[in-house]
Design a protein around this nucleic acid. Structure first.
Lengths: 205, 205
DNA sequence: TTGAAATATAAACAGTGTTTAGTATATTTG
DNA sequence: CAAATATACTAAACACTGTTTATATTTCAA
């Protein structure tokens, strides 16, 4: 059944074509302007065709959301060489914020938007997110073992750290810091760097 | 010119009518389902009429966003009686999270959505937000003066605290905690309470 | 009473995600 | 090889969205 195989390959190729178009449009024009019709236009097929390869728009953006996690997880993976778990945790915090500031659209999809949420719920395991979170768990758990940070439940402390960095990232992306105190991007960036240090110091025993 | 006065009153009355309808629909059905047409239907006018009283949809939601801040600021005001600035800060953190969990739609509008942002930029002072933030500034500044928390720039520390509580609130509202570890709402609530205590302890000298 | 100003709306514009019904092509079967 | 079937695709429609425009009606001042 070589023909069936080829057909399957072609089906996957078209899915890939759609995803590649969606990715480019998304990164160039943002979420709002990446509509089914603009993707269809881009790949020179009718909008209805896209629905032969994806159940709904969110299924496309779920794939993009996974791409974002791939980038973040790769960043985290490079920090594995840092032996001191607290220094590694600090580096992860910095890497997380760098990722958010450099890829605000991906960050939005991954942590702020409701868009891919129905899809996340479908796959009962949030694999993309789990990989990133387990890096955090590992760091926190080692810090506790070596008594580098104040004792407490690993999950609770991990969520505390995630909450802080997510708060910084999302308030910055949604421009709430600028609303509070009008200042240049550089100033805010500097303040946030100091803030991360201040937060991390608070974790120490 | 009594007639002109009456006309002005009537104009404000209709604005109020629109806002009241928008508020009810927003709280009952959420942001997505509160469209210009559903509001128009509700107040028994045509959609075009709404544009005689509001420049755009966001102008309506900017008013709702201000309503949210009124509620939050009232909560903060009741905490003014707490003399110990650190205890007051802790109470404010709890109040902030309580507000977010009880009024997720308002919270969304105030701190997560892009919707009222163009309007925020128009009014060059973000009055609604400023009132809330200045409560925080005051608390932080008093804590530093009395050496109750680690020294540092007032603005930076305030943003650190805001980032943490906003992170908790927004990750919870957008259901990212549930994605990480499937657990009941009660469990998460308890964990987050412990997390707040853990975070606050980290601020202390 | 007449003319101007204010108020309201039907209808249209341009866009969205999604579905349906129908066509053209490719493949399998008798 | 021809007929039947399965696949791939799309035009057009559906039900929405925010917003604008041209038109009609009402209200008030001169």
């Amino acid at each position: 059944m070589a023909i069936k195989d080829r057909k399957e390959r072609e089906k996957l190729d078209k899915r890939k074509l759609i995803i590649e178009s969606a990715t480019r449009l998304f990164l160039e024009m943002g979420y709002e302007k990446t509509s089914i019709r603009t993707i269809a236009d881009d790949i020179e097929y009718s909008p209805a065709t896209i629905y032969l390869y994806f159940k709904e728009k969110d299924e496309i953006f779920f794939v993009l959301h996974e791409q974002g996690f791939d980038i973040l997880n790769k960043e985290f993976a490079t920090l594995g060489s840092i032996k001191d778990p607290f220094k590694r945790l600090a580096a992860m915090g910095k890497a997380y914020l760098d990722f958010a500031f450099k890829n605000p659209d991906y960050y939005d999809l991954m942590f702020i938007m409701r868009a891919p949420l129905t899809e996340i719920a479908c796959h009962d395991k949030w694999e993309a997110g789990d990989a990133a979170i387990s890096h955090l768990f590992k760091g926190v758990s080692e810090c506790i073992d070596q008594k580098l940070i104040r004792d407490g439940d690993v999950f609770m402390i991990s969520m505390t750290i995630w909450s802080y960095v997510h708060g910084v990232a999302s308030l910055h992306i949604r421009e709430r810091f600028k609303s509070v105190k009008e200042s240049g991007d550089g100033e805010i960036q500097k303040m946030l760097k100091t803030s991360l240090d201040y937060f991390l110091a608070g974790l120490k025993v």
